[in-house]
């Protein structure tokens, strides 16, 4: 129980640290006036004065920090000046489901494919299948996601769009699930795959390394001495034990993506998620929006990591007892 409390305390500490870090990056960098940044380009002196007062830029840094946190998480009335006073927080909440759809689908693909690839490579260790799969994984890691998206668009939207292969792919953009489930699905398939490619590479390679290392463990030898089939040994003893590492990795990446790491994919495919919101803010130098998305995503990542720790308890009995 004390351990749980300590973990919670740690999480709070990291949350505080993250918020200070993000705040610092945006509003406490040396040699720059944050007022001008918030106001955006070509702001009038009156607006500058109003902002300075509203955000307390004429007061000490801790007060500024407190005001910012209040605006972000309590009153949620942080407004974008570049975008005619649009409230930022509701905008993020509106964009979040799109990002969630994108990331969840991609996660499903990358988890299933990488488990299949990693397990197969480990089972056929040393053969050309193993080497081929791992090289494929390495290629996946080496492709910039935005470029892969562009190429996917080129192929599915233009070059081969009129053939039977890709005629089902709709134009870029997002169709809400409530509007048309099939349109939602067809519009997201290509983005899902593009986003998943890199993670398939990472995860299959990690899993393969893990499984190969486990093969030398005593308990794998025991399992063989028990007369179990190779498939059962690999899946029930090897893979199940590897899942402990797999899940911790997954929790981290999933949280980072939901928190805005999918920005490039969203931009390339015109999906109106949190990432594209950030991107639009980048082009207009709309600092409040960027800061808010970064802050929210960081908070999300920290909370997700705490959640992974809880999942760990179910996966690894050793950790369960250590607390």
């Amino acid at each position: 129980m004390t351990a749980v409390l300590r973990r919670a305390g740690q999480t709070l500490l990291v949350l505080l640290g993250v918020s200070v870090l993000v705040f610092g990056v945006f509003f406490a960098t040396p040699g720059a006036d944050p007022t001008a940044r918030i106001a955006g380009r070509n702001a009038s002196p009156q607006i500058m004065e109003k902002i300075r007062h509203e955000y307390g830029f004429d007061r000490p840094l801790p007060v500024q920090y407190a005001i910012m946190m209040k605006k972000l998480f309590i009153t949620r009335d942080l407004a974008s000046y570049a975008d005619r006073g649009e409230l930022v927080v509701p905008e993020i909440l509106q964009a979040a489901p799109v990002t969630a759809c994108l990331v969840c689908g991609a996660a499903f693909i990358w988890v299933t494919v990488s488990i299949a690839m990693g397990t197969m490579a480990a089972a056929m260790k040393g053969t050309w299948v193993d080497r081929g799969l791992m090289m494929l994984g390495l290629v996946g890691i080496s492709i910039p996601v935005f470029w892969l998206g562009e190429v996917a668009n080129l192929v599915t939207q233009s070059r081969y769009h009129d053939t039977w292969l890709f005629s089902w792919v709709p134009g870029l953009g997002y169709v809400p699930f409530s509007q048309s489930p099939s349109g939602w699905f067809r519009g997201l398939v290509i983005p899902w795959i593009v986003l998943a490619v890199m993670f398939i590479g990472i995860y299959s390679r990690v899993l393969r390394t893990d499984l190969v290392a486990l093969a030398g463990e005593d308990f794998m030898r025991t399992a063989r001495a028990k007369g179990l089939s190779p498939v059962r040994i690999l899946l029930w003893h090897g893979l199940r034990t590897s899942m402990v590492t797999f899940v911790s990795l997954f929790g981290m990446d999933f949280a980072q993506l939901v928190g805005g790491g999918a920005l490039l994919t969203e931009v390339v495919f015109g999906l109106p998620g949190v990432g594209r919101l950030t991107y639009r803010a980048l082009t207009t130098l709309d600092l409040p929006v960027i800061m808010a998305t970064v802050m929210y995503s960081a908070v999300f990542v920290v909370l997700a990591n705490a959640a992974v720790d809880v999942i760990y308890l179910f996966l690894d009995p050793r950790v369960r007892d250590a607390r």
Partner: peptide, 29 residues
């Protein structure tokens, strides 16, 4: 293996798969 010839190993610390109960592993065999 396991039915006619069985084997026990040196280090009982590492010879069981850590994520399953003892009973589960004996049942499995």
């Amino acid at each position: 293996r396991g039915r006619d010839i069985a084997m026990i190993f040196q280090d009982p610390m590492t010879a069981f798969t850590p994520v399953y109960t003892i009973g589960w592993q004996i049942d499995e065999q």
